[in-house]
Design a protein around this nucleic acid. Sequence first.
DNA 1: TCCATTTGACCACC
DNA 2: GGTGGTCAAATGGA
Length: 272
Amino acid sequence: MASRHQLQTMQFMDQASRSRSPRPDGVHGPPPPTPMSSPFSSRKPRVQEGQPTCVNLTPIPHTDGHLWRKYGEKKIKNSSFPRLYYRCSYRDDRNCMATKVVQQENDADPPLYRVTYIHTHTCNPLPPAPTPASVFTEPPSAKAEHHAVLFRFSSTSGGHMANADHPAVHHQQWQPAATTMVAQAHQLSMMCDDEQQAAAIRSGPPARRLSMFRAVVDGLRQMRSSAPPPSSTVVDGGWDTFSSFNLDTCEFSIDDELLCGDLMYSPDSMQE
DNA sequence: TCCATTTGACCACC
DNA sequence: GGTGGTCAAATGGA
């Protein structure tokens, strides 16, 4: 029997496959041959060198603030799960070339997905949604001279904001991992601010809550491993969930009880 | 009628 | 030649 959190996760998944029931397997015959003589003559290269990509490991791959249209699904060798291909819904309207690839990593509860984002969004949907792409629309700074990295996560009444404000975060080496972390934090923020999501989190086992928060920390850990910062401390700007993260010890500390949505966390609750 | 999803085919890359 | 990314017809719900 599925847990409440599992059901919530399934609801997230359903957003990607909403409204359309699958066709019966094998009901329709093989499609006729492609009528065009060279239908793929305008096909773009599969891999465009130098395009910005980042990888996000998340249990909720379909909640990142952007609208995606699925355009393909592929069974991948040596993987029990198909790979799903999405592109931005504004691809034609706004010439947004952002795409993402979702690959389920395991069958855990909740299952973990590897989401690979390719290209940054140029569609700038309204209201602006906090997504990895929206955070890193500025070109990466060539200078990473600061001695601390400031992350700011805030949840406002009108929507969610997630920013990595420090110029060092824009350093190219940090971008993928920082993007992952920001996306994780934003997903967690959304879940905590949503009444049903928060209820599911609250009713779940503490270990699951802890694992969710650790997903955020893991993003920071990736940042640290990809490019050690000039300073050892990440200072949180106030996303109400964690206050600081020590890049040397890979630990984050909680100053006091923290409010995330209607959930109150204390330092003890963050222990195993 | 519109539009998103499904799914097999096609094709580029290794 | 195998694998994976993309296309586009078919499908069906809104």
